[in-house]
């Protein structure tokens, strides 16, 4: 059992994760390859207006009005905290890095464990917030299906089991096995569910954005 989930399953999960992301990324570029125009007539693109620093800041703050900061500041804070902690906690977790060091001879620097423990708590509180939102906020519930709860569960499960494992609540071995399995499930599902925003966020946010400013839209969306 242990040899299976720590050996072939783990390798398979990582292979599916990496190949899946490569596949989705290449599909993304393939689907948008057709050129819409060669030299798009973007007005004012040639003439850059020089702004003062003050004006730059004022414009920047004004553009925030179009984002979540303006429409839903609480959600904006919670989702930011969630993503920061979600990424930091597993990467700089002491136990992960000790294991990495044991098997590959390289381990990253780690946070003290009491600190990663707090990061995990933040992740779990944010998950609870997202769940409550989906359950009780009418406008969110209206667009929520079983799939959304399932994805939320996949994202939360490694952190919940990790938290239980760290505090050694319930049967430690069972919790550890669940922790490994749920993490593997998460890796496998990332490229093929909406957890894929792990990759696509950067494409949406920066590639598409730049297509309409610096690089003058040469792709078809």
């Amino acid at each position: 059992m242990y040899d299976l989930i720590e050996g072939p399953f783990l390798s398979l999960a990582f292979i599916i994760f990496v190949l899946g992301l490569l596949y989705q990324g290449s599909r993304f570029f393939q689907l948008t390859r057709k050129k819409e125009w060669i030299a798009p007539p973007l007005p004012g693109a040639e003439k850059r207006v020089k702004k003062s620093v003050g004006q730059f800041i004022i414009d920047g703050l004004a553009s925030v009005k179009g984002t979540l900061w303006k429409t839903d500041p609480l959600m904006m804070i919670v989702t930011s905290a969630f993503h920061v902690c979600l990424i930091l906690a597993p990467i700089f977790l002491l136990a992960h890095n000790v294991l990495l060091d044991q098997s590959w001879g390289i381990g990253l620097w780690s946070f003290p464990e009491s600190f990663t423990d707090w990061l995990t708590i933040v992740v779990l509180i944010c998950v609870a917030f997202f769940l409550m939102r989906r359950l009780f906020l009418a406008r969110v519930r209206a667009i929520t299906s079983f799939y959304d709860y399932f994805v939320l569960l996949i994202a939360a499960a490694p952190f919940l089991t990790g938290y239980l494992a760290y505090h050694q609540w319930f049967d430690y071995r069972t919790v550890m096995i669940l922790h490994i399995l749920t993490a593997e499930l998460m890796l496998i599902t990332v490229p093929f569910t909406k957890l894929g925003h792990m990759l696509f966020f950067f494409l949406y946010r920066f590639l598409i954005g730049s297509e309409y400013s610096f690089t003058r839209g040469s792709r078809t969306w």
């Binding site: 242990y2 136990a95 044991q102 494992a165 760290y166 430690y172 071995r173």
Partner: peptide, 29 residues
């Protein structure tokens, strides 16, 4: 870590006996 985990992992594989191998089994609270 190398000596304990290294030996425990091989021991469990060869003897099919359950010995501590996850962090918390030795670093028990």
């Amino acid at each position: 870590h190398s000596q304990c985990i290294g030996c425990h992992v091989t021991y469990q594989k060869e003897k099919k006996k359950t010995v501590p191998r996850y962090c918390g089994e030795c670093h028990a609270r």
